[in-house]
Amino acid sequence: MELTSFTPLQSLGGGLLIGLAAVLLMALYGRVFGATGILAGAVLERGSGDKGWRWALLAGMVTGPLVYRLFTGGLPDVTVTASWPMLIIGGLLVGVGVTYGAGCTSGHGVCGMARLSRRSFLATMSFMVSTFITVFVVRHLLGL
């Protein structure tokens, strides 16, 4: 079990930037900022028209930690507690789940909720409850 410190100000500040990115994408290009849809459209969907805008977004997202380092002198902390097999199983489940559920934390949790979409509200409730239960089972019942 890896302890992490309570960071309300950084988390709020980061959240404001995430919301800003969602608003900017809508104002400039008229799309919701859903990481699932952007990744799928860039890599997996055939004939979804112009992929360039999605690759431009992905390039920006990936350089986020590097610009963070310019300001703070170090990369953001990425501490992975899951084992390699758990990362693979978790990744597969996330991939299947977000495809059927048509979105993830950014698409449903931020953009959909901000549009007051009933679908996104229920999807967000579903994955939040499911994650709470999963973490309880994995950490406290299975002890992984």
Partner: peptide, 29 residues
């Protein structure tokens, strides 16, 4: 599809600790 798919996403998120929007920027590290 919507509710079940999202629930499966949550299981994966709880196991790995990454959601797509967290993992894609993390590639930069």
């Amino acid at each position: 599809r919507l509710i079940g798919g999202s629930a499966v996403f949550g299981i994966g998120w709880g196991i790995a600790g990454f959601c797509p929007g967290g993992a894609l920027p993390a590639l930069g590290t």
